[in-house]
Write a protein that binds this DNA or RNA. Sequence first.
DNA 1: AACGGCATCTTTTTT
DNA 2: AGATGCCGTT
Length: 682
Amino acid sequence: MEKIFNHLNESQAAAVKQTEGPVLILAGAGSGKTTTIISRLAYLIEVVGIPASNTLTLTFTNKAAKEMKERSLSMIENVAYPPLLCTFHKFGLLFLKFNIHLLKRANNFVVIDTDDKKRIIKKINSELPTPLIASEISRYKNSLMTPDDAYKQTELFSYKQIAEVFAEYEKYLLENNLVDFDDLIALTYKLLDENPELAKATSQKYQYIMIDEYQDTNELQFKLLQKLCTVHNNLCVVGDDDQSIYGWRGAHIRNIMEFDQDFSGTHVFKLEENYRSRAPILKVANALIEHNRSRLGKKLIATRGNGDDVTTLNSNDENEEARKVAAKIEKLLESGVRAREIAILYRVNVLSRSVEEGLNRYGINYKLVGGLRFYDRAEIKDLISYIRVITNHHDDFSLKRIVNKPKRGLGKASLDKIELAAQKKGTSIYEYITQAPMEELEGLVRKKNAATLKEFAKNIQEVAGIAQASTYEFIDALEETFSLKDIYKNMQDGQERILNIDEFYGLFRDFVKKSPQSSLDEFLNELTLQSEQDQVEGESIYMMSIHASKGLEFEHVFVIGMEEGFLPLTGDGSDLEEERRLGYVAFTRAKETLTLCHAGSRFYKGRRSDLEKSRFFNEAGLCKGSLKCEKNTAFKKGDLVRHKIFGTGRIIGVSKSGREFKLKINFAGTKRDILASFVEKL
DNA sequence: AACGGCATCTTTTTT
DNA sequence: AGATGCCGTT
């Protein structure tokens, strides 16, 4: 008991103790959110006496789940079964394994990733852009729409077409017993919705539910949570409306804004004490986010005392910016700061390029986080396809991916012929290759290739036999039989690919060591749900998008590209309030110092364009008393501006007052003199 | 079947 | 600019 409350402040402790009923914990950046969740879990299990198996804690990323698991293990003692703590999708996977038979489907389904999904779509329709169809299908599934619903909903021909692709896509998944990411949640919901008894039983099993990063949930996840709360309302959600930065991906900020209306009798706790950043950093972050209208209202209170002022770094172009940032970082490193405590953040990934060059010139090592993920690399996906075919020879989808890797002379034309022949016989491609007489195969493809195909099928079977006997020997047998590394031996970026393959082999061996009794099947599904491999700790600084930085912290943070058009990013579909939240997330990553950089022009999309300093400098209160800053904001007669108290008005005159500009503004007929830093341009 | 040249697009990203 | 994708040529 003491151990649990030792490290908690008052509001954290209060939130931990409120175990019953709906609970909303508004956890500001750096306010000890994870500590609170873990403590609450420990309190439920160790003090209240709830069996660990009756709790459920859901996160969005594997990383968060992993961190919480590790930290909870050190806090919870004597637990026969560890509490279920996993991602939403993992929960869906587990649930479907036990219950998908109710949808008349076998539970040996395979989870496909976004790339697989796109390949399937592309095969069905190559006219419309695949990513569009993919995202529309995702949207339909998240709205629980059937292809039929989607078809009826629209009058547009192209969208009717998309609905038709959706129908065929669903048919394909069903026929091959595949499940996509959206299905993991949607089918789980469907099962609970159509089987009230199952919903009741599931809700009874998970009596205490906690959700991390609640501001990132979408509508379907919300509905799923409602089902899980069929027989109780012990739902505790933790999140921060000010850090909702995934609206563009369907996250429903409404969920957190209106939680207390969705669940009556909600207890609200605000965690506002910040244990991360120095006071000046928090001041700037608070000032910025206060400009958002749609928020629950929360202020970060500094506990770490005063520190350096937030610095603005002004450059003419991106090269100057890169030099200045690199020089500053070099100084920090010389003063003994560890490299991993320094991060460069940006709104758009392309902005990393110029800074990379600067860092290289200064000989500073950096690590790019994000970009192409390990499991998305073609060579790794090929390997996974090999393993899939070995576990399930009838997985035509994966087989087609690898049948010509390494080259076996099987191009599109030959493959189509084989596939057609297999379809006619009603068998899988693998089965067709093994069973068709040699003469028949030779009628379809070249003699030499027919033999290669037979050999390929034989090899698959052989390696499958080895896998069954010993997962230990499997990986070596795979490489020996198919020489997958040789494919890349003579390619330009081949060495890197071979290294990736070796890394994958290493990961596989680790998996086997950790759970020797597991089948390849389990390994595969685990893999599909896995995101990035753990970033290796090294002596290099970090560079990443603001999105990727969420949840992390660094002593020294540089935000580059703070210009209109980059942060905030403008254009169709952009949401100024979400951009502001992005700024807020970026600022609150910093523990000791925060440096905000902007450049007068950048080379972007093939041409150089002039840029205005971001309005966020003004909003964050970083412009007071400085004329230099006003130059870029360029208030002029006729501009519409907003004042926090007087509302919207039009500038009718500009004059200088000391070091600042004074504006004469017409607010709905009332003319007032206002200092420029107190209004924002509309 | 494989390669190379031309056109097109360009925010953020997890599962 | 740079990556990706499609199509036509070899």
